[in-house]
């Protein structure tokens, strides 16, 4: 008498367990299906839009990496090669020399090179750059805005949730497709004469 009873108890338990397993599997599949149409096979990376950026300086401090993966990028095509560069010199600089007291950049990452009178080339020493955006602010205020902050993808570890994006006051950070990972402002056309 006892054996069949025992068997049926085990069978019922087995049946229930299988049923629950099947429904959990269905649930997982359902969750996958629910988000599947929003899925993309292409990878995305974080990037900041220089048009929205206000150079608050948080890129330098909020990145999980030290120094930050955000660097100043120089779009040479936009540069005016000015002698008095708003991105290189502090506002009240009297002598336009490469003296440390004149430089806006706190880490000496902006390099100034004489090309021909009266033009100077400015380049960024990226390993030194901390992404504070001081030069970007200066260039945008007094110059062409050729210095722009960008996430460098050879450095960025592509966190699931970018720590800078979370704290960006102007919501300039977003995920962009890997195929077009930079959002640099470019000159669309030469200035009409």
């Amino acid at each position: 008498m006892e054996v069949p009873e025992n068997n049926s108890r085990i069978n019922r338990r087995k049946f229930l367990s299988t049923g629950v397993r099947a429904s959990v599997l269905l649930g997982i599949g359902g969750a996958a299906a629910l988000v599947a149409d929003k899925a993309t096979t292409g990878e995305t990376v974080w990037q900041l839009d220089p048009a929205k950026c206000i150079q608050c300086g948080r890129c330098a401090t909020n990145c999980v990496l030290t120094p930050s993966a955000v660097k100043c990028v120089h779009v040479y095509a936009m540069c005016g090669y000015c002698d008095l560069c708003g991105g290189y010199f502090k506002p009240e600089t009297k002598t336009l020399t490469t003296g440390a007291e004149n430089q806006l950049c706190p880490t000496n990452a902006v390099k100034r090179k004489f090309i021909e009178d009266p033009f100077f080339e400015y380049s960024i020493d990226e390993p030194l750059c901390i992404g504070c955006g001081k030069c970007v602010k200066g260039c945008g205020a007094f110059g062409n805005g050729s210095l722009q902050l960008q996430v460098r993808h050879n450095i960025c570890v592509n966190c699931n949730q970018c720590a800078i994006a979370r704290n960006c006051p102007s919501e300039a950070f977003s995920r962009v497709p890997l195929s077009q990972p930079y959002l640099l402002k470019q000159v669309t056309q030469e200035k009409p004469v």
């Binding site: 120089h74 040479y76 005016g80």
Partner: peptide, 22 residues
């Protein structure tokens, strides 16, 4: 462009803006 790009006479070649990929 507040300051137009100068016309260089010394044969200066403008460097490319590096865009390292991920």
């Amino acid at each position: 462009q507040r300051f137009p790009k100068p016309e260089f006479e010394s044969g200066y070649v403008q460097p490319e803006t590096m865009q390292p990929s991920a």
